[in-house]
Simulated scan of single mutants.
Amino acid sequence: MTPVTLHTTRLVLRPWLDSDRQPFAALNADPEVMRYFPAPLLREESDAMADRIVLLMERQGWGFWAVERTQDKSFMGFVGLHQPEDLPFSPCTEVGWRLARPYWGCGYATEAARASLSFAFGQLGLSSVVAFTAVSNTRSQGVMRRLGMTLESPFDHPRLPDDHPLRPHVLYRITHDRFAR
């Protein structure tokens, strides 16, 4: 299936290019970007993640899009939709993002996530979309609130050990009707 491309005022959410792998590996190796994940990724791990993202996009036509800034065509990271498995609230579709630090604090994550939600509720016809993060990740929770998402419940991430400091997570949700308002 041909992957969809989305456009916003300042961004293009597009299929991945081979040239995205190096900057993607750099952002995945940045300890500050990966602060709310178990660990920064090695290049091989980052490339494997990119392979999984590309495969899903080729299968379904959507997923975690590569985000490119329109003004200079720079790769910023990814934003988009995913269907996580084995979580207490699965099945579901999540909206998620990971941007390189130079692009933080400019509203890019919110802008791109809003375009992803529009696609989810429009073309995919979903009734709700979730987002989740570690309890301590207040920046991402701020994006979730700016998107109109509401805090639903805390949960322990099942893929992290019981004593891991990032195990406590929060779940946010937005419905089609709330997004339409």
Score class of each variant (00 low, 15 high):
residue 80 G to A: 00
residue 95 V to L: 03
residue 84 P to Y: 11
residue 79 V to F: 02
residue 100 A to T: 03
residue 126 L to S: 05
residue 110 T to Q: 09
residue 85 E to R: 12
residue 69 R to E: 14
residue 53 I to F: 13
residue 63 G to A: 00
residue 140 S to D: 11
residue 125 G to V: 01
residue 106 C to Y: 05
residue 97 W to A: 06
residue 126 L to G: 04
residue 48 A to E: 05
residue 51 D to L: 02
residue 65 W to E: 07
residue 57 M to R: 04
residue 127 S to F: 01
residue 79 V to W: 15
residue 78 F to Y: 14
residue 64 F to Q: 14
residue 47 D to S: 13
residue 54 V to S: 09
residue 88 P to V: 05
residue 98 R to T: 06
residue 92 C to F: 02
residue 39 A to Q: 15
residue 107 G to W: 07
residue 88 P to N: 11
residue 85 E to M: 12
residue 50 A to Q: 12
residue 60 Q to I: 12
residue 114 R to Q: 10
residue 84 P to A: 08
residue 136 S to D: 08
residue 132 F to Q: 06
residue 84 P to K: 02
residue 68 E to L: 12
residue 126 L to D: 03
residue 76 M to F: 15
residue 87 L to P: 09
residue 139 R to L: 12
residue 92 C to H: 04
residue 80 G to W: 10
residue 78 F to M: 06
residue 37 F to C: 09
residue 131 A to I: 03
residue 127 S to H: 13
residue 113 A to S: 09
residue 105 G to L: 01
residue 79 V to R: 08
residue 100 A to D: 10
residue 96 G to C: 00
residue 41 L to T: 03
residue 115 A to Y: 06
residue 121 F to R: 06
residue 112 A to F: 00
residue 108 Y to H: 10
residue 38 P to I: 09
residue 133 T to K: 02
residue 46 S to K: 01
residue 68 E to T: 14
residue 123 Q to D: 15
